[in-house]
Structures are given as C-alpha cells and as structure tokens.
Design a protein around this nucleic acid. Structure first.
Lengths: 208, 208, 208, 208
DNA sequence: ACATAACCGAGACGGTACGTCCAGTCTTCCC
DNA sequence: GGGAAGACTGGACGTACCGTCTCGGTTATGT
C-alpha cells in the first residue's frame, strides 16, 4: 500500500536540458577568447549559447562560477606520459601546463577568478576542487614513478612527503604562471630545462 | 598689462592639487580593503578622496592604472638587509614579500590587474615598471652580495647570469604568490626554510 | 458502428476539476485585495489556489479575463428591493452599487480591466456580458416598477425609452464610479439624496 | 567675508536638460497611442525621446507618474467659450471633454492610472492636482456666468454651492467617461442634448 | 481489463522589461 | 585652466513574470 513515487529522477517537473550545460560552457570559452574576462557578459554568453539568461542564472551563481567550470575542463587534458626519466617527465608536464596557460581563454580567466577568490571562500573552494587539486595528482604520480625507477628514495614519512609535494606544486605551478603572465616571457624548451634542473637539484640536495 | 606666466610649470591656469594625488591613492587602498577589486568603483574612490570624478579621470586612464599606482608603493617597503648568509637573506626577503602579499589590498588587487594586463600591453608595462622590476633588483643585489661573501662563484657570463636571475625571480615570486593566493596556505617560517633549501640546493647543483 | 457519446460532456478523457475553478477565482480576489491589479501575477494566483499555472492558462486566456470573472460574481449581489417609491428604490440601489465598488478587490480591478478593454474588443464584450449588462437590467426594472406605481408615464416609444435608460445608466454608474475612484469621496446618504433628487428632477423636466 | 554662492540657480553641477522633459512627455503620448498603457515600457519611451533610461528615472518615479504628466496637458485645452446660454455652454464643454477622452492616448491611459491610484495615495493626489481639480474650475465658471445671465439664482450659501458643484462635476465627468469607456458608445450631439436637459432640469428642480 | 485521451502538479524553458548601478563624458559655476 | 558638482548617454546587471513546454502521473470514457 505504499505511495507510488517510482519516478527515476525523483524530481517532478520538466528536467533540465542536458545539452544546455555544454553549450553554455563552450559559449563561455568562446566569449573569453574574444572579449576577455572583464568584457564578458552573461547576457552575451546566453545569446551565444542560444539560451535564455534565466537558464544560465538557474545553474550558476555568477560569472566567477561559470568561468571556473568553463575553464576547468581544459586542465583535464594534462597527462604524465612516461618519458623514461624524472627530468623528462617533469619537462613534459611543465610544457603541457604552459601550453594550456598560454591559451587566451585560460590566460585571461584564471588570474581573474583567483583574484576574485581572495574575497570569496566558496569560489576558492570551487577553484581548488575543479582545477587545483585535480592537477596535484601529477606531482604524486611523478614521484611514485620516479621511486619505481629508483631515481628517488622512498618517502621517509608521509607527512613530510605531502609537504614536499605541496611545495613542488606551488613552485612549479607558480613559476610557470609567473613566467607566463607576469614576466610575459615564453616558457620554451630552454627555460623548462633550466627550471627542471633547478627543481631536481634542489630536491636531491634537500633529501640528500 | 600682459599676463605674467611666472608659474613654475609654464602652463597657464590653476595647477593641479598636489595633495589630491595621494588622497586618491589612499582612498583607493581603503576601498580595496573594504570592497575588493571587483566592487571598487571610481565614483566611490572620488567621494572618499573628497575629489570630483573628473579630477580622477584627468589623472588616470581607468581603474586598472589607478590601482596599480595605489598598490605599487606598498612594494617599495621591500628591502634586503644583510643577515649574514645567502640563505638568511632569501628567507628574509621571501617573508617580507609574503607579508605584503597577505595584505588585503594587495591580495585582491594584484592578481586582478595581472589578469587585466593579459589583454592590455600598456598596463602590462606599467605593472612591470611600477611593481615587478622593483623586486627583480632584489635578486640581483642578493646575488652580488653572495658573490662578495664567496657563497656563489662569479657569474661565468652575463647572459647566463641574467637568465638565471629571471628564473629565480619567477620561481620565488611565483611560488609565494601561488602558495598565498591559489593554495591559500600560509607562508610561514617552515615553508620558507623548505623553499629556500630547495632553491639554494638547485642553484648549487645547477652551477656545480 | 457509431461511437457512443453517452458522456454528459461528450468529450473523452479526464474532466476538468470542478472545484479548481472556484478556488482560482477566490484566490484571484484574495490576491487582488492584497496586491492590487498591477502586482497580481498569475503564478501567484496559481500557487494560492493550489493549482498549476498550466491549469489556469487552460481555462483563461490571461489576467484580464480571469479578473473579470473573479469580480463579476460580486455584482450579482445587486438587487432592487421594493422600497415604496422610485426615489427610495434609486437611493437603495445606488448605495448598494457604491458599497460593492468600495470593496478593495473591485476598486482596484474594475478600472484596470476597463482600461485594458479600450484596446481589446473581446475583453470589452466579456465585461459587458459579465458585469455591465447585469446592472442595466436594474434600470429597466426600476422604470417598469415606477410605471406600475404611476410615478412615471408609460414610455412614449420604445426607441426613446431605451435611449433614456442608457442615459440614466451612464449617469448613475458614472457618477458613483467617479465619486468613488476619482474624487475619492464617500458615497454617503447625503450625496445619494442629492444625486437622486437631481436625477429625478431631470427626468421629470425632460419628460414633462 | 561671506561665502560667495551667487549662482542664479543655487544648485551646483550641470543643470538638467530643459528640452528633455518635453521630449519625454511627447514620446510617452506617442507610445501610448501605439502601444497602449499596458505594453508601454519606460525603456521604449526613453529610446523614442532620445534619452537614457536613467534620465527618465531621475525625473519621474515610475510609469504612473510619467503618464499622468504626459496626459495632463491635454486636458488643459478645455475652455468655456460663451455660447449665449447655460445649456449651450454645458453642451460645448461636454463635447470638448468627450473629444479629449476619445483620443487614444487618453482613452487608454486615464482609467489605468485611476486604477493604480486606488492603491497609491500620492498618485491619487497627483492626478487630482494635475487633472481633476484643474477642470473643476469649468463648473464654477459656468455657474458664475449663468448667474450673471440670470439663468440661475445666486448661491444661497457657499457650502451648499460647493457640494452642488462637486456633484455636477462627478455627474458630468462620470457620465461622459462611462459612456465613452464602459458603454463604448459615442458621445454625439443627441446624447449631449439629452444629458444637458437632464442635468439642467435636475438643477432647476433641486433649487426650485 | 485496458487502451485512449484529456487532465493535473511541477518546474525548466526562451523571452521581455524591470529598476539599479557604474563607466566615462559634458556642462555649469567657482577659484 | 583646474576643480567640485552633478546631469548626461550607454550598457550590463540580476530579478521577476510571462506564456509555453515537457515531464511523470491520474482519472475519466469506451470498447
């Protein structure tokens, strides 16, 4: 005699359009390329996506959240192919990261949302979840692979290993971002070699 | 009966108020602390400074330029006191830099203007002149002092020395910025010691 | 082999909920009292009535039609009890009309739908059928009763009688509406006596 | 040594555009004719007037106030030319009033603002000041002229005279409005003759 | 019994206007 | 000519409703 609420979704009413989300994110990236962060307007994004402004506001709280989601997916391209040595692996992933950061849609947007996030804790959390933490895995994978190869000794204790991973992540990501956006110089092969040498030398010295 | 143009500038008419500039910049910093970058409006700054909006636009092209000038002066606090060793010097300056970056007015403004500068070359130049290059001298000074102390060998050739200085600068500034704004973790004594060890180890390995 | 249309309505499928109609009209009157015409929204009416917006639009074309129906029923209260003389009959019905017009739901709605009806012929027709013509019968009844009493001579010709009835109707209804809504003065006993005297005096003079 | 604030206007700053007001009111009347009250939007009016929306909101609180001002001027056309007799004077002014009320911009707007005014006391006051009371003078002038001609006896006491004037005003204005907008019948010569006869007969009977 | 068809609630949809805010400019009078 | 005041055009904001639609699901009739 139970009440029949056997709907698969549970929620009544018209379901949200499945295609709209991706259309909006794609339109956002397109608008970022053309207009940059500060001239991007949600009305324009809605028009490009063929969607009403209300639909957009129903799904995202504002420009910041929308842009984080639109850009986040680009960073998922990052991989860590095995290039035979720790140095080569690092150089490869740093170059990949620099290439993503050099795209106009990320270049203009990433710093802007980080700037906003200094006064907006939920946004900071969203950035961390959507972008930052997803890439930290690369550091951990690289370390694990280097240990398997015997290039690095096994981590002495987990706590110290985590702190080192965080440090490497801040150094590597920070250096590439600073070089690209602040110094406005290219992250080319030579720079990457120099940076990698510095980083590996430092790691060896620190653990030796 | 001719008009005496004894004004020091030679320009006719009332000279610009000397005090207004500093009042505006101070009002800008105050507004940055209270409102953050994105909610700061020029009208509000003008009101706080007791100045007409016209005056403000006569002296700065827009929000970006104004904020760069308002924040730049804060970075002039950076010094490089002699602490006896290269490591101590680095730790000291990194901590100073982190302290400046932790202030609400810089935290909210710096990434924002950098973000804007990705699409605005004159702004990028202004940031470089007002903020970035003033820090870079610290790297050069530190290197020179370390050479005098014998901690580092003399630069083999100028070109390579400049590239290394740039690299160190991007790594150090980038790491601190990333740690502070993206990872949102404190730049405390331990982190600075770890970072300095990494950096010096890397430098030694690279030059050895 | 013909289809049996033994249903009372003839239409197959689930019949419309009988209770919904009255719930909606009651909710409309309630919303009119609270919000007035211009802030009344159909979504709000639907919510108050515990009904989906779809249901509402299935039965009424829009706000205007709904409000006409909601208010029309209030005018059915108007009666013409025999008070012994034409003057007393007129005074009675004018007071009744004024009382209905003083209710907040009619006050805010009636002029609004009349305003809309100036650009919407079907709405004008609906108002006439639902509201206006129901009042006009009172004029005709009053005249007939006065003739039976001998207070007025029999109508000389039907065409003239109809024109006079229309005139009386416009004068009486118009005066009460104008007094109530435009002059915003009360239609009290004294005003009604003065008005009735004017009207009856005019009628006597015109027919004499 | 007094502060010199010898500006003629007294207020500092750029003065309001003198031409904008009339352009906006004219655009409002034009839009009323084309769109009617309910489809008239302030954005559209601003565009027609060649003015920014903010300018419009700076000067009027909303649609209601704007429309009252736009329409009020039309009623100032009403005059009371001397046609030789009280009856002729009344017929003349009633026809004028009906003609104004038949214009699309008044027809659609007047009832709408009256409807709104039922829930908005300041608006009611504005209507009274801008439109209603300005026309009440016609009743008083007509009475005075009729007294000079000897058609009506001098008012016995001022209080009663004022009440009679109010009554006449409500009856006349109300009847014309009702005939035009509710009954939707033309106010033609015959109707006006009948109405005037009724009114004058009633007045004579009441004062006799 | 079971299909058919109109009903129902909920709520997302594209669209339009709202009234506000700010940018950057212009116009006035004053110093 | 600089400066304070404030009105100006223009454009985006985020919200509220409109009237439509698309779901899952209900309730009648008709075979």
């Amino acid at each position: 005699m139970q009440s029949r609420t056997s709907s698969p979704t549970g929620r009544p009413g018209r379901p949200r359009s499945a295609t709209a989300d991706e259309a909006i994110l794609e339109a956002t990236r397109e608008a970022l390329v053309e207009l940059g962060w500060s001239k991007l307007t949600l009305g324009d994004v809605a028009t490009r996506a063929g969607v009403a402004k209300t639909t957009l506001y129903r799904r995202w709280a504002g420009k910041n959240e929308l842009v984080v989601d639109a850009v986040a997916v680009l960073f998922d391209e990052l991989e860590l192919p095995d290039r035979g040595s720790l140095a080569a692996d690092i150089e490869g992933v740093v170059l990949q990261f620099a290439a993503i950061l050099d795209r106009p849609e990320t270049k203009t947007a990433l710093m802007a949302v980080v700037a906003e996030s200094t006064r907006d804790a939920p946004l900071r959390e969203r950035i961390r979840n959507s972008i930052v933490d997803r890439q930290k895995r690369l550091v951990l994978e690289g370390r694990a692979r280097a240990e398997r190869r015997g290039e690095l000794p096994a981590a002495p204790d987990p706590r110290s290993a985590a702190a080192t991973a965080d440090l490497i992540f801040d150094v590597a990501a920070g250096a590439v971002v600073h070089r690209t956006l602040v110094s406005a110089e290219p992250v080319d092969g030579e720079w990457v070699r120099r940076f990698t040498a510095l980083l590996l030398g430092g790691l060896a010295a620190a653990s030796g």
